[in-house]
Amino acid sequence: QLNEKPLPEGWEMRFTVDGIPYFVDHNRRTTTYIDPRTGKSALDNGPQIAYVRD
């Protein structure tokens, strides 16, 4: 279940091809599976993935 609260300024939620949510921090140009609103991860110790700018 996804959090309904808005993401912090400069953050975006995207999904992997497998449908796993991850979070893009455009301020720091990093990505993470940890939801910045809750501190909880969509994966157990998930790796960071490459930042992609559209």
Rank of each mutant, 00 (worst) to 15 (best):
Q1D: 12
L2Q: 05
L2A: 06
N3I: 11
N3Y: 10
E4M: 11
E4N: 07
K5H: 06
P6T: 13
L7T: 01
L7D: 01
L7E: 02
L7V: 05
P8D: 05
P8T: 01
P8C: 00
P8G: 07
E9H: 10
E9T: 11
G10V: 01
G10T: 01
W11N: 01
E12I: 03
E12Y: 02
E12P: 00
E12L: 02
M13R: 09
M13Y: 06
M13C: 07
R14A: 09
R14I: 04
F15V: 12
F15A: 13
F15T: 09
T16R: 07
T16P: 02
T16W: 02
V17Q: 10
V17G: 06
V17D: 09
V17K: 14
D18H: 09
D18Q: 07
G19N: 15
G19E: 13
G19S: 09
G19R: 15
I20S: 10
I20T: 13
I20V: 13
I20H: 11
P21L: 10
P21Q: 10
P21N: 06
P21M: 08
Y22E: 03
Y22C: 01
Y22Q: 03
F23E: 01
V24L: 15
V24K: 03
D25F: 01
D25K: 00
D25G: 02
D25T: 01
H26G: 05
H26W: 04
H26S: 08
H26E: 09
N27C: 10
R28P: 01
R28K: 14
R29E: 09
R29Q: 06
T30V: 15
T30R: 05
T30K: 07
T30L: 15
T31A: 06
T32G: 03
T32L: 00
T32W: 00
T32A: 01
Y33N: 05
Y33K: 04
Y33I: 03
Y33R: 04
Y33E: 03
I34R: 13
I34Q: 06
I34A: 10
D35T: 01
D35E: 03
D35L: 00
D35W: 00
P36I: 01
P36N: 00
R37S: 04
R37F: 02
T38E: 14
T38F: 04
T38P: 12
T38I: 08
G39V: 13
G39R: 08
K40M: 10
K40P: 11
K40Q: 12
K40Y: 11
K40D: 12
K40C: 09
S41H: 11
A42R: 09
A42H: 05
A42F: 11
A42D: 11
A42E: 14
L43Q: 09
L43V: 14
L43H: 13
D44H: 10
D44S: 10
N45V: 12
G46V: 10
G46I: 04
G46R: 11
P47Y: 03
P47N: 13
P47I: 03
P47D: 14
Q48A: 15
I49N: 12
A50R: 11
A50F: 09
A50S: 14
A50N: 06
A50D: 13
Y51W: 12
Y51M: 13
V52Y: 12
V52L: 09
V52C: 13
R53F: 02
R53I: 02
R53Y: 04
D54E: 12
